[in-house]
Amino acid sequence: MHDSEILNNLLLNRSIWRGSKPTSEKHIPTGHPNLDVLLNGGWPKAALVELVSHQEGIGELNLLLPTLENHTQSDGLCVLLNPPHQPYAPAWEEANINLRQILIVRSQNYDEWLWTAETTIRHGALLLAWVSRYIPRYSDLRKLKLSALHNKQNIFLFNKVNTLSLASPASLRIEMYSSMLHELFIIVRKSKDNCNGKSIKIKQTGAPIQYTSLNKLVAPIYSAFPDKDLSQKPNDSVKTLSNT
């Protein structure tokens, strides 16, 4: 139909060399040098990566921020399928993530979840999927893995802890937990790169620690309104006006 379509068909020919395209690599750097060393180069490319976190709020998503940054800044679309909460845009932008390339999708049932995951991968978008009410079947995950391989795109699946005992077709499966503040422990549970069972501790950036007990909290100086009952204030002002 358009010139660009003709050009795209032409570029599908493998004999045409494209200078702008990097040579194919097996790994994508994670943005965490220690983790790259552990995973022999980074996240496996075009693969299903399973992330199992023992609890929320330990930095499980923080681990993927460099990957998300690279992907969205190069105008790649990223789909968040059934995230546990809504992304807080100022924080995501602070992490240099292009919000225009972030799409949040909520599915109503397992069929929709699976269809969305497949469709997303088929269209070449990066997928971050959370498993909430249902446990995906092995065969479905295998389909997703093959789809990721075929479409040369990654799937990051945040799975539940109780699935660790189940078999997984994922190319990489890592377990995450934290016992100390700003420290994330990562154990590789399954990998093609012979790093099964290896673990690493990642130091996370955070606010400066300054423990304060509740009864010693600093009372803010600025206060926009006095502590009086403000609900009566508009009425008072109306009275004043009417009197004058």
């Binding site: 679309l77 789909v79 809504q86 992304p87 807080y88 845009a89 100022p90 995501w92 932008e93 919000l99 225009r100 972030i102 799409l103 949040i104 999708v105 909520r106 599915s107 109503q108 929709e112 269809w115 969305t116 469709t119 997303t120 269209h123 070449g124 978008a125």
Partner: peptide, 24 residues
């Protein structure tokens, strides 16, 4: 065009309210 196609397909199957985007 692939991005637009994906958004159209997701909207058609899941409904408009199922898709959202964060902004500041």
């Amino acid at each position: 065009s692939r991005k637009n196609e994906l958004i159209d397909q997701l909207t058609a199957r899941l409904g408009k309210t199922s898709l959202s985007q964060p902004s500041i």
